[in-house]
Each structure stands twice: as C-alpha cells, then as structure tokens.
C-alpha cells in the first residue's frame, strides 16, 4: 500500500458561509493534486446535478468522502439528490454496475450534540453508525468498501482549541489516506475513523 490514492471530497453545506466547524475542517484539507474538493451547493445551486460529470469524477478517485453537517440524522438534500442522480443502475449497481467496485466511501460529519448523545442510552437513542445505515447500504450495494464516519461532535459547545484539534485530526487522516499508508479492512473495526486514526498513530 504505497501507491498514492486519489481522494474526492463531496462537500454538501447549504449555508457554508455561516458555518464555523466546517469552515475550519475545510481549511485543513491538505492542498494536493490528489485531493479534489467538490463543493456541491456551489456547483449546483439549482440542484440540477450533472451525472456524466459526476461519474467521471468518481471514476478518477479511489476514496470518496461524503462531507456534510449532520442535519436531522442525515445529509442536506443536495447530497441525496447527488446519490439519486449519479449512482446509475447498470453503472454503480445492478447488472454490469461495477464502476465503484472496491472504492472506499465514508462520511465526514459535524453535529451540534455531543458524542455521548448518539448511543442507545443517549438522547438520540441510536448511534451515528445506525443513522448512517442508508449510506453504508448504498456503498455496499455498489460493491464499495464503507468505513465508519469521521465525526466532529458537540460543535455547539466546542471552543476554538477543541475545534482546532479536530481539524488537525481531519488533516492528518487525509494525509495518511493520501499516502496509502493503511489496510482497508482495519478501520471497519472502529466506531469512528477518529478512533482508528488516534489509536493507530505510528
């Protein structure tokens, strides 16, 4: 695993100019010819997603990140629109649909509530992984590998230092993925990519 990976960040934020956490996360995305930052709301303010263009982008990348704030236990509507329009039958899934085979998908999310609230006993009664089931199934249906999410929880209370720490982790994660310095199977054993990154630091 020494080959450079190409990373596609599908960023979906309807009100990015009023965001604090995501602004910092996005600022820490490494500048690299191998990372494509694709700002969906900027590109498709009219929701008219261009599937040919999107499919071409997907084909040219190995790791796809659905990066979005965690609204109402899911993603902002344009990301769903993107999935509906782009992942075509016979291309992404179904007979002959192997274009995404063995690619890696994961979500990067930000949530106002703390990590503890997303548990069986917590306020939201389900884990983030539970809520992300549709994304996991989508990736699995497309014969791709689905990893647990990179999550920044508790953004409502997070101070500057805490936020900076999270942003640096995101930067480190992406740099590691870029370098191809990982085994695609191991992250799946952790509830969060944050944990995998922190616990397997070289």
């Amino acid at each position: 695993m020494t080959r450079k990976h190409n990373i596609l960040i599908l960023f979906a934020h309807p009100r990015f100019e009023r965001s604090r956490a995501n602004a910092r996360l996005v600022r820490h995305i490494p500048k690299s010819g191998h990372i494509t930052f694709h700002d969906l709301y900027e590109r498709y303010p009219d929701f008219n997603v261009n599937p040919a263009y999107e499919k071409d982008l997907l084909a040219r990348h190995d790791i796809i990140v659905w990066h979005h704030p965690f609204y109402w236990y899911g993603a902002p509507p344009l990301l769903k629109q993107w999935i509906d329009v782009t992942l075509e039958f016979g291309w992404a899934y179904g007979p002959g649909g192997t274009a995404l085979k063995d690619k890696i998908f994961f979500n990067t999310i930000t949530s106002g509530g703390p990590r503890e609230s997303y548990s069986r006993e917590g306020h939201h009664q389900f884990t983030v992984q539970d809520f992300l089931t549709p994304f996991r199934r989508t990736a699995t249906l497309c014969h791709a590998v689905y990893w647990p999410p990179f999550a920044v929880h508790g953004t409502h209370r997070l101070d500057e230092a805490g936020l900076q720490e999270q942003a640096l982790q995101y930067q480190g994660l992406l740099e590691r993925l870029l370098a191809g310095d990982f085994d695609p199977e191991t992250p799946q054993q952790y509830p969060y990519l944050n944990d995998w990154f922190n616990q397997t630091k070289p």
Partner: peptide
C-alpha cells in the same frame, strides 16, 4: 436562519 450553525450557537 436555515442551516445557520452560528445562529444556533448564539441561541444555545
């Protein structure tokens, strides 16, 4: 105020 993270933060 839709999707306005900062606004929510202020209120909370």
């Amino acid at each position: 105020h839709s999707w306005d993270g900062e606004y929510l933060r202020e209120i909370i």
